[in-house]
Each structure stands twice: as C-alpha cells, then as structure tokens.
Design a protein around this nucleic acid. Structure first.
Lengths: 146, 146
DNA sequence: CTCAATGCAAAGTATTTGCAACCGA
DNA sequence: TCGGTTGCAAATACTTTGCATTGAG
C-alpha cells in the first residue's frame, strides 16, 4: 500500500493525486499541474488542449503543448476524462465521465453541461441488430438570442 | 481515357439540376457530378469529402479533392446539406437537412440515420437565459455486439 | 538503476486558400 | 465577354510521433 505517500499538504494535492491514482497514472509534476487545473476545486470543467495549456502557463507552470495533448489522451484512456466532439476543429475534454447532455455555445465555441432536465429521452435508445449502444451524445447547440 | 460522356441523361440530371437550382447554385459539370452522387437516386446519404471524392473517381469523373471540399461547403451554405460532427477527425455531410438522430458505427467510422423511434425527446430542450436552441444533435454511438 | 514520462521539433491529417486558367450564362 | 468556378499547390489548424533527456519508484 502507498506508505502514507507524501501527505504533506493533503489539501489541494490530495485530490489531484488521488485522481491520478484512480487512473493508475504516475503523479509526475506535469500531470499534477494539469490534474490540479482540471479537478483541483472539484468543479466540472470542459477544456481544449489549447485552453488547458494556456491555463497552465497562466499559473506559471511550464508544460509543453505536446505533453498537454498526450496527457489529456492518457487521462481519457484511463477513464478520468471524456472526449466530447462538437466542433470538428478541436477536441473538448470533460471532467464528468458519465453520459450527459451538453450545451454548445456556437458563437464562443464554449461547451458546458446542460442540466439533466434540459432534454428528456424516452426509454433506452434502440440499437440495430448486432450492435449495442456505446454512448448517446446529446449536444444542444445554442445561439445568443437577439 | 475517353471523355466518358457528358451525362446526357435527362432523367437523372433533372433531379440534381433542380436540387442545385433550389440552392441558387450554377449547374457546372463538377457540381452536377457531385449532386448526382448525393441525391441522384433520391436516397439519403452521409458522405465525407474523401468518400465523395472516391465515388466521383469510381465513376470516372475527375473532380479535384479541393473542389469536393469547396463544393460540399457551398452545398451546406446553400442549405442543401447539413454538416454532422461525430468524429472530430473528419466532417460528415448529410443529404437530410432536418434535425434528426444518427447512428455512428465507431469501428467503421460510418454514419447513418437512426429510425425516428430509436430515441424520443420529450418536449423542447430547455435553453438557458439569453440563448435559444439552434439545433439538437443526437448521436447514438454503436459498437458491434460480441 | 530502469523504464515511463517529457519536451521539442518534425511529421501527419483534414481542410482552406491564393491565384491563374476555364467555362457557363 | 464577365464573373463565378475549378484545380493545383501551398498554407493552415490541430494533433500525433520520433527520439534523446529526465525523473519517479
């Protein structure tokens, strides 16, 4: 068992480290920085590689863009994040890993969670013969009301 | 190879030409070829730029890939096609322009229409303050059943 | 000490754009 | 003729990869 691993400042670091641990990923400096930015305060986040890279720079942490991409991919493979496809030109990553609907603000290219009751699906989606449903993506595309 | 014809078929040409006309687009040779491949038989289609380009080559028509891209974009702008984003790495274009759910076969990267009763939305999706719903994308991701 | 993780730059994809030649009305 | 269209190649935007270096266990 982890010999009471460096529980120096169990506050912030605790959550990120535990999160990485849950995905069986080594807590390297870069991963801790990114994990902290993603789940540090417990709120759900929707980021792009670019936005996360900027966020890291803003707090003075140096993580290369390639590493941000690779790390997001690793987080996804470990089941810590979900990739959401809404734009075609870039990938969004969501810290919520359950199947839920999204709002996509077209003008700003911003993604956010939609309240559970924003849409209601009746029953289970039907899968054709020989296939099974892996996931149901629901994206509510929004436009500013004029 | 010999100029395999000017496609002097009134029957087929009719539908494609009318379709282009509906979008106020000039019926050029390339556009007629692509339109014919898209709506020639009246069935709904889901294509990528790449797949449509191949289809054109398969029938001996020469249309450059750049033109396929530009033309698909023009068809979309004219409201003749809808762009569907499911994969992130490529764009799909659907000849059905109404809001309807899709099946996405992950292994094959194939997109198809889902029957109307595959999913049912209850009522209108809720839009947050100051915004209105532009469209609701529903993608049922499928996996081959083992 | 060992092997996974990182950083950088180069390589890939998918798509768009600049511009001269072309063609449909 | 004239302006919209096409084709090609070069440019773009995003993402992945090769490889030498670094660092966690």
């Amino acid at each position: 068992m982890p010999p009471a691993a460096g529980t120096a400042d169990a506050g912030k670091r605790g959550r990120s480290a535990a999160w990485l641990h849950a995905g069986s990923l080594r807590p390297t400096r870069q991963r801790l920085v990114l994990a902290e930015l993603l789940v540090g305060d417990g709120r759900d986040r929707h980021v792009t590689a670019e936005s996360l890279h900027e966020a890291a720079q803003d707090i003075g942490a140096s993580v290369s863009l390639a590493t941000v991409y690779n790390t997001l991919r690793a987080f996804c493979d470990a089941g810590l994040l979900t990739e959401v496809t809404v734009d075609g030109t870039r990938s969004y990553f969501d810290t919520r890993v359950d199947d839920h609907p999204h709002y996509y603000w077209e003008e700003e290219g911003r993604l956010s969670d939609a309240p559970n009751d924003a849409v209601q699906l009746v029953g289970e989606p039907v899968a054709p013969e020989g296939a099974e449903v892996a996931r149901v993506d629901v994206v509510i595309r929004l436009r500013r009301r004029r």
